[in-house]
Simulated scan of single mutants.
Amino acid sequence: MSDDFTVTVLGCSGSVPGPDSPASGYLLEAEGYRLVLDLGHGAFGALQRYVDPADVDAIVISHLHADHCIDLTAYIVALRYGGEGYRLRGPDKRIPLVGVPGTRDRLEAAYDPLARKLGLHELFSFATPIQGEFGPFALSYAPMNHPTPTNGVRIEFGGRSLVYSADTGESAELVALAEGADVLLCEASVAPDDEFVPDLHLTGRMAGEHADKAGVDRLIITHVPPWNSRQVAADEAASAFHGTIDIATPGAEFAV
C-alpha cells in the first residue's frame, strides 16, 4: 500500500469564484476515504466529478466566509432531493461536518433564514475541531490570523503531512502548525500592487516566508483572486522559499 495520499483541487479562486475556477474546495483521499476541505462558491459542482456526494466520508470547514462554506447549501438540496448517488444510505450515514462554533446556525441561515426546523442533524453530524482521527487521516488545527474565527488544518496519513492555511494574515501559529510538513497549501491573496491590510491575507512573498520558516518541502499557492495573477504570486513566493512551488489550479491532483 502506498503511503501517499492525494488532494484534488475543486476550486482555488480567492474571495469569489473566477471565470476558470470555483472558490475554495479540496478533496483529500486515502485508502478509499474521502475528506472534503472547504466548499465555497461552485465547489460542490466540481466535487460531483470525482465522488457521489453521499459517499463523502467527512467535511471540514475552515471558517464561515462564503467563499469557503456557501456550497454546503447546495449539498443540503442534493442530499434532500437528489436521486441515487445523492441520498444518504443506511440507518446513520450522516456526514460528519467539522467547523467553528456557529457552523450549523450559519448553514441554516444561508439555506433558509425563515426555516428553523430543517432537520440538518439528519444530514450532518456537527462537531467543532478536536485533534483526532477521521478514517485513515489524523487531523490537528490551529487558529489563524483572520477577522472571523478560522482554523488552519494539518492532515497526516502514512507518515506524510499536508497543512492548509485557510485564510490568514501573518501567523506564527501557521508556521508552528506547518513545521516539517511535506506540503503547505497556502493562500496568497494579495498582489504586489494591492493595498496591504494587516491581519487579513498574505502576499505571495509572505506565503513563501511562512513555508521557509516552517521548513516544508513543497508549497502550493492557492486562494488568488481572479483579478490577480497566480503566476505572480508564485514568483513572489519563490523569492522567499527555495523548495518546490506549485500553483493550485482547478482539477489539479497532487500526491502528498
Rank of each mutant, 00 (worst) to 15 (best):
M1D: 13
D3P: 06
D3Q: 09
T8S: 02
V9Y: 06
P17T: 05
G18W: 09
P22E: 06
A23G: 12
L27H: 13
L27W: 11
G32Y: 00
R34V: 02
V36H: 10
L37G: 05
L37N: 07
L37T: 04
D38F: 01
G40D: 11
H41L: 10
G45N: 12
V51Q: 12
D52L: 07
P53G: 01
A54E: 06
D57P: 01
A58F: 04
V60I: 11
V60F: 07
V60W: 04
I61W: 00
L64W: 09
A66L: 15
A66H: 14
A66V: 12
D67P: 15
D67W: 15
C69L: 08
D71W: 13
D71K: 05
L72Y: 02
L72I: 04
L72F: 03
A74R: 15
Y75A: 14
V77I: 03
V77W: 03
A78I: 09
Y81I: 00
Y81A: 02
G82R: 13
G83P: 01
G83L: 02
G83S: 07
G85T: 04
G85S: 06
R87T: 13
L88R: 11
L88Q: 06
P91K: 11
K93R: 14
R94S: 12
P96Q: 08
L97A: 06
V100Y: 00
G102L: 04
R106Q: 15
R106M: 15
A109R: 11
A110S: 14
D112Q: 05
L118R: 11
E122L: 14
P129C: 05
I130P: 00
Q131W: 02
G132H: 12
P136L: 05
A138G: 04
A138N: 04
A138E: 08
L139N: 02
L139D: 04
A142G: 08
P143T: 12
P143M: 14
M144K: 00
M144D: 05
H146T: 02
P147W: 05
P149D: 02
T150R: 03
I155V: 14
E156W: 01
R160S: 04
S161A: 15
G169F: 10
E170V: 05
A172C: 00
E173S: 13
E173G: 06
L174G: 11
V175A: 13
L177Y: 10
L177G: 09
A178I: 07
G180C: 11
G180K: 12
D182W: 01
C186D: 03
A188G: 14
P192Y: 03
D193T: 10
D194G: 02
V197M: 08
V197I: 14
V197C: 01
P198K: 10
L200W: 12
L202R: 03
H210Y: 03
H210E: 01
A211N: 07
A211R: 01
A211S: 07
A214Y: 11
G215D: 04
D217F: 01
R218H: 14
I221M: 07
I221R: 12
V224F: 04
P225G: 11
W227A: 02
R230L: 06
R230E: 08
E236H: 09
I245W: 06
A248R: 09
T249W: 07
P250D: 08
F254V: 10
A255I: 15
